[in-house]
Design a protein around this nucleic acid. Structure first.
Length: 568
DNA sequence: AATATATGGGCCC
DNA sequence: TGGGCCCCCTATAT
């Protein structure tokens, strides 16, 4: 066993381009070689040269030696792969070859990206997967991870403190305890693996008046209604939408009706008891005419003052709907770059006429909906990449929290202050991945200090030999991680999370499953509460690494216990 | 147990 | 401004 390993794989087009024709030719049959030769282009050869130039002498020797040995047995071509290759036209040259293992991220030899046990080893040729900064570190050694032994720390506050900031901070910070006590964080799985969705969960909402009812939507457009106290009460409606259910809102004047927005281009108003719905808006009245004209609706919010439903599409336009007359009001207004998706809308809870929109054009924008025109935002908040979501703080509406695909959560502390740059950028792993519902950091609606936010984490952590993707509770005033919530029963990434408006309950959507979390069981809780009461200012200081470690271990022990109970 | 594949956004030409 | 291609810690059906 040397450093070289034999890897069998179907030879695909990308690899051909990357690695050039040389390796393939050695093992290809005559017929295949002809195909290969005719399809290889000058760029292929360039790729080959580049690789040769970069490989160390030793590597090249190894590789050639290995291939010479590997070439002896006749290469077998799986018939299925060959057939698939034929179908794909340009990919017809599907053959199986053997060569040295290659990094799946950069296709170079000498290292390998991927899981080693429960720890993921990054490709050293790529920028850090966490902070995205170029430089000679990977996720494992990223300063945004190592310092506090998790993936979250505050970026330096960029704007200088203005006097306004100072006054504001002293007013807020002086009077109220800053963070949610740990014993109130829902970190124990109450119900797991509720799988009535057939595709990944895309949105969750607690019913505002029926306390234990959770509403859920999925990628196929299925609407789920589940009472997690009366466990058996699960209802699904599959006729409301035909594809991704992106957003839900319960009517404040009639809590039996739900508004839903979908990538099928419609807004539906559905009776929760019967599942009977009526379309409030259909942006694709002429059906499918190709992707360039297909409307999808992602952002939606309700202006409760005016009875207005605000809706935005994937072409950058905002629409107003009158809730009662079910008609459109005025003309659509361009609020983000033409042709780009508006990802979320949020009306300010204190001033409902103030709207926050987030978009694929790398901006979040604040608007006054009373005098709305294109190019007239009150403010444009620049981001590094696509903005997944933007929310005003739940009570005062004075803060803004955005989630951006550049792996940063941004916080603006005061919307009437300087909005040029965020008050804080918090590095946090929540990468975009086409197969996942986009991550959205959301405020805890019960936290009257407007500090705590929840968001799922993309990168995994090694918990006792198991790679798990936690759900993070973040102190947005410092970037500090308040809690990381995980359970060995949840092995998939949890991008969708919703905190209950009144109770200390967290709902999680992870792949097709829904989970309900509660704080620790009663006896532990009282113990912790007593501890908390005795040591008052525990939260102001920074946790040491050792402390964090200990906490992590404790949590995992609980999780293991949970597993034992629920499984087998 | 390997593997095909769905599919959004960035980026490059 | 549009098409083609690439992609990185996925999840699941086969």
């Amino acid at each position: 066993m040397g450093p070289t390993t034999r890897a069998h794989f179907v030879y695909n087009r990308r690899r051909r381009r990357r690695r050039g024709g040389r390796h393939a030719v050695e093992e290809a049959s005559d017929e295949e070689q002809q195909q290969m030769d005719s399809s290889s282009s000058s760029s292929d050869e360039e790729g080959d040269q580049e690789e040769d130039a970069e490989a160390s002498g030793e590597d090249v020797d190894d590789e050639e030696e290995e291939e010479a040995v590997a070439a002896e047995p006749a290469p077998k071509q799986p018939p299925a792969a060959a057939a698939a290759g034929e179908k794909r036209g340009r990919r017809k040259g599907s053959i199986t070859i053997s060569l040295k293992k290659v990094c799946k991220a950069c296709k170079r030899t000498g290292h390998q990206a991927g899981f080693k046990g429960a720890v993921y080893i990054d490709c050293p040729m790529k920028p850090c997967f966490l902070c995205k900064m170029p430089g000679c570190h990977t996720t494992l050694t990223c300063p945004h991870r190592v310092t506090m032994e998790h993936g979250v720390i505050p970026a330096p506050k960029r704007n200088a403190n203005t006097s306004l900031d100072y006054v504001f901070q002293s007013q807020v910070k002086g009077k109220i305890p800053m963070v949610k006590p740990k014993f109130l964080i829902p970190n124990q799985l109450e119900h797991g693996n509720i799988k009535f969705h057939q595709r990944r969960v895309t949105c969750l909402e607690f019913h505002p008046t029926k306390n234990s009812v959770l509403l859920s939507g999925d990628k196929k457009g299925l609407l789920g209604i589940w009472d997690y106290v009366k466990l058996h009460e699960k209802i699904t409606y599959d006729s409301v939408h035909s594809c991704i259910l992106n957003s839900m809102k319960i009517d404040t004047t009639n809590d039996g009706m739900i508004y839903t927005a979908s990538s099928d281009g419609t807004i539906s108003c559905t009776d929760l008891d019967t599942g009977i719905g009526s379309p409030l808006l259909n942006l694709n009245p002429n059906g499918w005419n190709g992707p360039s004209s297909w409307h999808m609706i992602y952002g939606m919010d309700l202006n409760t003052d005016k009875g207005l439903l605000l809706v935005a599409d994937n072409f950058g336009f905002l629409y107003f709907l009158d809730r009662r007359s079910k008609t459109r009001i005025g003309h659509p207004i361009l609020i983000h770059k033409k042709g780009s998706k508006v990802t979320s809308l949020h009306c300010n809870p204190a001033r409902p006429e103030v709207l926050l929109s987030s978009g694929n054009d790398h901006y979040a924008r604040i608007w006054d909906t009373r005098k709305l025109e294109a190019n007239s935002p009150l403010a444009s908040l620049a981001h590094g990449r696509v903005v997944n979501s933007g929310y005003f703080s739940p009570r005062s509406g004075n803060k803004i929290l955005t989630t951006c695909q550049d792996n940063r959560i941004r916080v603006w502390d005061y919307i009437l202050g300087d909005l040029q740059s965020p008050s804080r950028e918090i590095v946090h792993s929540h990468d975009f991945n086409r197969h996942l519902t986009p991550f959205k950091a959301e405020w805890d609606p019960k936290d009257y200090t407007e500090t705590v936010a929840v968001i799922g984490r993309y990168i995994s952590e090694n918990y006792n030999g198991v790679a798990l993707h936690p759900i993070d509770f973040i102190d947005t005033s410092s970037g500090k991680l308040l809690a990381e919530v995980m359970d060995p029963d949840i092995i998939t990434i949890s991008p969708v999370n919703k905190l209950h408006p009144q109770d200390d309950i967290l709902a999680t959507g992870s792949s097709r499953s829904i989970f309900i979390w509660k704080p620790k069981i009663e006896d532990e809780l009282t113990e912790e509460r007593a501890k908390h009461d005795n040591s008052s200012d525990d939260d102001s200081g920074g946790d040491s690494g050792g402390k964090n470690k200990k906490a992590k271990k404790t949590r995992f022990t609980h999780a293991v216990k949970g597993k034992g109970k629920s499984k087998v």
